[in-house]
Simulated assay, not measured.
Amino acid sequence: MPGIYLIAILASAAGVLLIDRRWRLAAWQAPARTALAVGIGTAFFLAWDAVGIATGVFVKGDSALLLGVDLAPHLPLEEPVFLAFLSYLALVAWSGAVRLTERRRADAASPRSEASR
């Protein structure tokens, strides 16, 4: 079914967006910085793909799940969407891990946790 891969990426991105919104990890905390980071990450991975395509390392396989729209030889439309999703997911995961680590450190240093030892 053409387009199912793009739908899966967009549905996954919507889930990450909801997580981000709930805990204000990236886009809801600093929208411009998040957009810049996702843009830079996507551009970096597209350049990486271009080098891989030029050297023959990356080739587009045949799949009925792709829309069939190529932005360049061996670069399907879904690729930059996936790379943006990957960059955003990494940013949200990193922000969540930093917040969790900070919270655990703060809990460990609180007087209440000292009294329970």
Rank of each mutant, 00 (worst) to 15 (best):
1 M>Q: 00
3 G>Y: 01
4 I>D: 09
5 Y>D: 05
6 L>I: 02
8 A>S: 13
12 S>A: 15
13 A>D: 08
19 I>M: 10
22 R>P: 02
22 R>N: 04
26 A>M: 04
29 Q>F: 07
30 A>V: 08
32 A>L: 15
35 A>D: 00
36 L>Y: 05
37 A>M: 14
38 V>Q: 05
42 T>E: 12
44 F>A: 14
44 F>H: 07
46 L>D: 08
47 A>P: 02
48 W>D: 10
50 A>S: 15
51 V>D: 09
52 G>V: 08
52 G>T: 11
52 G>N: 04
52 G>Q: 12
53 I>G: 06
56 G>F: 11
58 F>T: 05
62 D>Q: 10
62 D>K: 10
66 L>W: 01
67 L>Q: 03
68 G>R: 04
68 G>E: 02
73 P>H: 13
76 P>K: 02
86 L>K: 10
87 S>I: 12
88 Y>V: 07
89 L>M: 13
90 A>G: 15
95 S>C: 12
99 R>I: 04
99 R>Q: 08
100 L>G: 01
100 L>F: 05
103 R>S: 06
104 R>E: 07
104 R>S: 03
105 R>M: 13
105 R>Q: 08
110 S>P: 03
111 P>T: 01
111 P>M: 01
115 A>N: 08
115 A>V: 07
115 A>I: 06
117 R>V: 05
